[in-house]
Write a protein that binds this DNA or RNA. Structure first.
Length: 494
RNA sequence: GCCGCGUUCGUCUAGUGGCCUAGGACGCCGCCCUUUCACGGCGGUAGCACGGGUUCAAAUCCCGUACGCGGUACCA
């Protein structure tokens, strides 16, 4: 396939959503797989819901995730401008053409009048009243009003909209790349608004005009668009254009049911905005890999892919049809996986930043690197190096209750004291894991007790909690002074 | 309600009529490793929504039912 061009066309009504990122990803993978172009188009035709910061957030999020756009706002290709608010002339032009062809018309009805019509029809037994081939003839529009009145209304700047003249009975059939042939009866469609009274186009018109003008070959979008696809097909037909291939992606669902929305996701502690994943220090590769597998699979048992591998393997045919529930724990698994594959040197600056933010200053790179080495197998998310390893940076502020109960017995202070005195005799340069362990073992043997009887209390005293990396390595890294003082503190306070 | 789309372990999925007594991964459980926790290794748990066809043979094809989801705006 050559000259593939796809677009990601978000509406800047808020921060980029995780579902939007997946749509972008599938578009990106498809484009790159075919050596085609990935276009970003900003669909800012809804003035009421417009959010100024959204566009920047979208671009930043895409970049963070490793997707670079080939064309878009700030990256002009030959098909700009890439914001729909800057393309008004095109929509006006093609709306006018449709009117001239008698495939669209002006309408002057107020919202109340339309509501009245619906209410009236509903009362008389029509369960789903529409502004359609039948009802349009009893409304105020350029099909029912005399020409001079239409002109008068337009000239006196009265509000008007342009509606698509949907045929009364026609079967609209098209082939979806994921679902196969889908067909709709035009009876079920209403006379879609094409141009709103503010002069801006609705999604349907803008989308069709732009996809054509931008020479988009494949429209890959969420399943929520499937029902409006027939309207788009009609528009392509009337405008005399060949429709692009269409692929409607299965939706990402909430574990609670329904499509994953801001509300039902946040209730479950699932971050919804890409920005939240950035702030939460997720690895972009993990999110991408996870998202790619939400609705797609390579067909074999491989699970971990880089972006390049995804590009190589991706195909529309391998996308599933059913909605996929967002599985947070699998994402975490991916994150752990990628986190562990990052070399210490690369992790260092990032962990350092985390330490700084937590107010842990004055630690050398060498020290930090040791912490990373010790903590790496234990962290799921980057911030956990610091959160779960706080004792590498400060004295334990408190002691974990459960562990205290389990490990700190009556004779413990005495044992810990014994251990303290033993290691106090070690020179600074001899304060090594093996040496420390030897001392502890000696006491355990001498006292005839289990290893854990002493090790657990020491761990508790030094770290405040009952789990963590090798205790002796930890103590070596902490250094003699800190260890001794923590041991003393614990004996005194527990 | 109407229109459309879906439905394989709890979850993501493999499966395109015989290779399926349905494979992998996450989760969960157990064992091993480790005198902690994790990592790692090994093993276990659990699924073709239901009912009819078609066929020598159906998770796979057809019809129906149920359930889920989407749409039904001068929002995208």
């Amino acid at each position: 396939m050559s000259n593939v061009r796809v677009r990601f066309a978000p509406s800047p009504t808020g921060m980029l959503h995780i579902g939007g990122l997946r749509t972008a990803l599938y578009n990106y993978l498809f484009a790159k797989h075919h050596g085609g172009a990935f276009v970003l188009r900003i669909e800012d035709t809804d003035q009421k819901r417009y959010v100024a910061e959204a566009e920047e957030d979208i671009i930043k999020s895409l970049n963070w995730a490793g997707m670079t756009i080939d064309e878009g706002p700030g990256k002009n290709g030959n098909f700009g401008p890439y914001r729909q608010s800057e393309r008004s002339e095109y929509y006006q032009k093609y709306a006018a053409q449709l009117i001239q062809q008698d495939q669209a018309y002006y309408a002057f009805d107020t919202t109340e009048e339309i509501e009245d019509m619906r209410a009236r029809l509903q009362k008389s037994g029509n369960p789903s009243p529409k502004y359609d081939a039948i009802t349009r003839m009893s409304m105020k529009n350029s099909l029912t009003l005399p020409a001079d009145e239409v002109n008068r209304r337009m000239e006196s700047n009265e509000d008007f909209i342009v509606r698509l003249k949907v045929p009364r009975r026609e079967t609209i059939r098209f082939e979806d790349e994921i679902r196969g042939f889908v067909s709709f009866e035009s009876q079920g469609l209403d006379d879609q608004v094409l141009l709103k009274s503010d002069g801006l186009p609705t999604y349907h018109l803008a989308n069709v005009v732009d996809d054509h003008l931008m020479e988009i070959t494949h429209v890959i979008r969420g399943e929520e668009w499937l029902s409006s696809a027939p309207k788009h097909i009609l528009l392509y037909e009337y405008l005399g254009w060949k429709p692009p291939k269409m692929a409607h992606l299965p939706l990402i669902m909430s574990p609670k049911g329904g499509k994953l929305s801001k509300r039902n996701a946040e209730e479950l502690g699932i971050p919804v905005n890409v920005r939240d994943y950035v702030k939460g220090h997720y690895e972009p590769e993990a999110l991408i890999n996870f998202l790619a597998f939400l609705g797609w699979s390579p067909g074999d048992d491989r699970e971990v892919f880089s972006m390049d591998e995804l590009i190589k393997e991706f195909s529309l045919e391998r996308i599933g049809k059913g909605g996929a529930i967002f599985n947070h724990s699998k994402l975490i698994w991916y994150n752990e996986h990628f986190l562990r594959s990052i070399p210490e040197d690369e992790l260092l600056p990032r962990v350092k930043l985390q330490a700084d933010e937590a107010g842990y200053a004055g630690f050398t790179d060498d020290y930090l690197k040791q912490v990373i080495l010790l903590m790496k197998e234990r962290a799921s998310l980057l911030p956990e190096f610091i959160i779960h390893g706080a004792y590498f940076f400060e004295e334990p502020k408190e002691y974990d209750e459960k562990t205290v109960k389990k490990a700190w017995k009556e004779n413990t202070p005495e044992l810990v004291g014994l251990f303290r005195d033993q290691i106090a005799e070690l020179d600074d340069h001899n304060f090594k894991a093996t040496e420390i362990k030897q001392r502890l073992s000696a006491i355990v043997e001498e006292q005839g007790i289990g290893f854990g009887k002493l090790m657990q209390p020491v761990r508790l005293a030094v770290t405040g909690i009952g789990f963590g990396p090798d205790l002796f390595e930890t103590m070596e890294l902490l250094g003699k002074d800190k260890v001794i003082s923590r041991l003393d503190n614990a004996v005194e306070n527990l």
